[in-house]
């Protein structure tokens, strides 16, 4: 489902993804937006084919559960379908989709916090790590546990930048903050992760 889409170099740039011909990226974005505004379901399908995997991964890292991640992606597509005809935002359709997804995840986390009697356990489904360059990194399990302890905002910034490879400008657009705030959030997240990982390393020693 990845369609050969790869993450663009982080610094600068405006589009979330790039193909060999960057001009061909802008045109489909505009076309997608037009199609989405008309309520054309195939436009949403193309958006899902291009960004679905990344959206699932982002939601899974924010929510800690693959089934909830899929629910969040479904809810996101339904929201953007309902609102696309009136969407006049300055951001691209895909940036907007990620923004709606992050806010949907925040909503789900808030709802979950109101019912603490049903804790979520992460049960990893059969996972293809083919596109993850450091899938067997020794720090992966500890890092995932420490990440889950971060506040949702810093976690979102860290996952968007460090895990999913968005640039700070894109993270800023998605979280609705200036680029500088995105840098601060990622830096603070990394510092908190360092503190937690060091603590657990010392506890084990």
């Amino acid at each position: 489902m990845q369609n050969g889409v790869r993450v663009r170099a982080r610094e600068g740039g405006e589009n979330l993804v790039e193909t060999p011909d960057s001009a061909s990226v802008r045109e489909p974005e505009a076309e997608l937006l037009e199609g989405a505004r008309r309520g054309d379901v195939s436009a949403f399908e193309r958006l899902f084919q291009t960004h679905g995997e990344r959206m699932k991964s982002l939601a899974a890292n924010l929510l800690g559960s693959p089934s909830e991640a899929e629910d969040a992606v479904q809810e996101t597509f339904l929201k953007i379908y309902r609102a696309a005809s009136s969407f006049r935002g300055s951001a691209s359709l895909s940036t907007w989709a990620y923004r709606v997804l992050v806010n949907t995840c925040y909503d789900l986390l808030r709802r979950r916090a109101r019912r603490p009697e049903s804790p979520v356990s992460w049960v990893e489904p059969p996972v293809d790590f083919g596109s993850a360059p450091a899938a067997d990194h020794p720090l992966r399990v500890d890092l995932a546990a420490s990440l889950a302890a971060l506040d949702s905002r810093r976690r979102a910034a860290f996952v968007l930048f460090e895990v999913e490879g968005f640039s700070h400008r894109e993270v800023g657009d998605i979280l609705g903050v200036p680029e500088g705030t995105s840098r601060s959030l990622v830096f603070e997240a990394r510092r908190e992760l360092q503190r937690r990982l060091w603590g657990s390393r010392e506890a084990r020693a």
Binding site: S57, P66, V127, D128, F129, H137, L143, E162
Partner: peptide, 15 residues
């Protein structure tokens, strides 16, 4: 190592 390990948290599964 945090930045090096972070991409390993990308989750890809068939749905």
């Amino acid at each position: 190592a945090i930045s090096q390990a972070a991409p390993s948290l990308r989750k890809r599964w068939e749905s």
